[in-house]
Amino acid sequence: MSEDLPTGVERRSFDGESRLATRGEPVYGEPTDEGWRLWDAGRSKLGAMVELGMDAGLAGGDTVLYLGAASGTTVSHVADFAAPTYAVEFAPRPVRDLVGVAEDRRNLFPLLKDARKPETYAHVVESDVDVVVQDVATRGQARVAVENARFLADDGRLVAAIKARSEDVTREPAAVFEDALAALEPTYEVVATERLEPYHEDHLGVVARPR
């Protein structure tokens, strides 16, 4: 099977199954194998996108801006294979854990900031990042992506997980996704979309490049 995983992401065998893994300090009690940490697609939207074969534009050694880092589950894996990784999260409690994750890594920079207000971290996050990963699960997800386009390199990628229920619990997910994609359209050219089932229900994975 030919598969373009970023350098630093490998398939390893866990309990006899071939699973994604990255190499680094364990963070949340995940299974490890000779220093490789299981990256569970069921616990990570980005992991699911990689598992589903979406091209997230990650090569390994990338510069990454991660929006909605929470306590650092996914971003810890990203920092394992990427270069500078800026992690934005606006809820204070998970940031405590995120700080702990950053303390074990040289290239992870935690920022307690609101992703809707990029002007509050544009003095810290460098320009021309390769990939903006977004998993904010809050109303206005397309707007967050649009606001943060300013950080992307011309050939960079937005890799976003859109959660339907965060926008409107009463509407059909498909309709919510359609609106979100339309809102991205002026700023981004969408290159791939994929529903994240069975790993995450009613989530749409989106890869896009800035116009």
Binding site: P84, P92, R93, V95, R96, L98, V99, A102, E103, R106, N107, L108, F109, P110, L111, L112, V124
Partner: peptide, 17 residues
């Protein structure tokens, strides 16, 4: 990056608290 790391970790910890 070493300085950035130190400053962001300090800032995030203080701001969260």
């Amino acid at each position: 990056y070493a300085r950035l790391r130190e400053a962001t970790i300090g800032a995030a910890r203080e701001a969260a608290a």
